[in-house]
């Protein structure tokens, strides 16, 4: 199954009396990685939640269509800043959380599903932790389990809300390499605060800017992901991206 692209139209969000964005239109190409940036409170995380169909306290509206015309529901995986591991299941159970919570074994049998979960765990380097409790893991390890859980859903569209912002800098770089490899050829939309992270991973950059916000596209560096930290292209783009983010809010 090839991943669908997403076409977002007429996305509006009002925070109190303040319109954060109004009739926003954005397209996300199939199989590409888009990073969504913007100042704090610009509504980028809310936009991601709206695409995922998650609850929001503020008034909002969105029209979201897929490139293949099929519903998005059941084809998306969600990863957030918190690892969201449940303490009452062991690591392997957390990887297979979707299957466990849905309580049915669609398609593969139980042992096949377990095999798949174990294979994913070994790809994130935690094969030996399958039977550990989440409480026994470090923050970086927990986020790796969260990544394995996201991959286990085998969804075409992966939505990530600052997935690597709660881990230390070195772990973050390692997680970039891992995520970039494991999420290749999926439609990824990632909200991030970190320009460097965006420039390492993204095929497309979108900056939410102004109030109400517009989505300003910016060219991403070319070259294979994840790009090296000392890539001169990356450094040049970083200055440009930071300048764009610092631009005062006006329309």
């Amino acid at each position: 199954m090839s991943p669908p692209g997403l076409d977002i139209r007429r996305a509006s969000l009002t925070f109190g009396a303040r319109p954060l964005f109004h009739d926003l239109a954005v397209e996300f190409d199939a199989g590409s990685w888009t990073c969504l940036l913007g100042r704090s409170g610009c509504g980028k995380s809310s936009l991601l939640r709206m695409i995922a169909g998650l609850a929001l306290p503020d008034r909002h509206r969105i029209e979201c269509t897929t490139s293949d015309g099929l519903p998005l529901q059941g084809r998306l995986a969600w990863m957030s800043q918190q690892d969201l591991l449940v303490p009452w299941l062991r690591v392997i159970g957390n990887v297979m959380l979707g299957t466990r919570w849905r309580g049915r074994w669609a398609g593969p049998t139980a042992s096949e599903a377990r095999e798949r979960a174990l294979a994913l765990l070994s790809r994130v380097g935690l094969a030996d932790k399958a039977d550990a409790w989440p409480a026994a893991l470090s923050g970086g390890q927990r986020q790796r389990v969260a990544l394995a859980r996201t991959l286990y859903e085998d969804a075409g569209v992966v939505l990530m809300d600052e997935p690597f912002s709660a881990v230390d800098a070195i772990t973050r770089l390692e997680l970039h390499d891992l995520a970039s490899e494991l999420l290749a050829s999926r439609t990824v939309i990632m909200v991030t605060h970190d320009p460097l992270e965006a420039l390492r991973l993204a095929d497309h950059l979108l900056v939410l800017q102004g109030e109400p916000a517009r989505a300003v596209p910016m060219a991403a560096p070319t070259g294979r992901r994840p790009r090296a930290l000392d890539d001169p292209q990356l450094l040049a783009h970083q200055a440009e991206l930071v300048a764009l983010l610092r631009e005062p809010a006006h329309v």
């Binding site: 998306l76 995986a77 918190q82 969201l84 959380l97 919570w101």
Partner: peptide, 16 residues
């Protein structure tokens, strides 16, 4: 809320 978000994207019913 994060666990409820996961439940939503997993497509769980309210009872589940």
């Amino acid at each position: 809320q994060g666990w409820l978000d996961l439940a939503t994207t997993f497509g769980l019913s309210r009872r589940q």
